[in-house]
Amino acid sequence: MRILVAVDQHPYSAHVVKDVAKLAGNTWADVTLLGVGPKAMDIGRSSNRAGIKHPLTEKLKKYRRTFLEHFEKEESPYEKRSCSYEFIEIKSGIWEELYVCRGARKDLRIVLRAGNPVKEILAQTQEDGSDLVAMGCYREGDCQWEGGLNLPQKVANNATCSVLVVKEEKQIRKIVCCLDQENISQKSIEMINQMVTLYQTELEIVGLTDKVALKPKVEKNLEAILKYYNARQIKAWIKLVETASLESFISQEAKRSMMALWMGGQSILTKIFPRGKVEKLIQGSQSSVLLLR
């Protein structure tokens, strides 16, 4: 699993880094902390020679420390254990003495990109092959993300992988999860599993009905999911929602629960809940939102 954490300088970014550290502790994911800022200077040399500092470099270093502090040093999969000069064969018959640090079992990268934040975040997800993009946001109102208006909403709409928008610190009591009703992927139920473990919360699984009842296939799927979570000691509730009431249900639940929506290409939710509504959900929700793809 590879997680991209997009950060800026606001407190919600520090919060999302802590959450992702916990998630990474459970999943041993490769993680990239990405800061996006104005194109200004040569950061590599600036702090030493020209004396110019990019506003995000110090924050990124701080976030790295915050991330690593979550792990015991000896047990951390991200800890680089020993560094020394070693001759490494770089081409056939050619060796070079390189300074090599060995021991980190998992990758923690700190990346700073300059340019349009939405484009840069999406480009980094493509380059990394990320499974999940995580970013923070204020609990209420527009997500004024470092000058980029509604940035989390735009990333959520355009990313090809799953997106987690973490609202500022708030106790999550319940994750309400609208999975695809007929084709539920193992990956999506495992991601939900991780979120339940991360936030130590209960789960509510939504079954979409027409006016009469659940389709037999959907009912079988719900039963299988319920068994899956019960076997993992996860308290899972079932709630039936009529397709026509889904929007009002989501807007009501988003006030007090974390919403997890399956928005894959084949998902019925992408038809019922198009882009504009996703933006509105992220903006209006008081709690975190997870879009599964």
């Binding site: 079954g207 509730w237 079932i238 709630k239 039936l240 929602v241 009529e242």
Partner: peptide
Amino acid sequence: SLHSFAAKK
């Protein structure tokens, strides 16, 4: 009777 968002049931 599974829990339902709609009170009608």
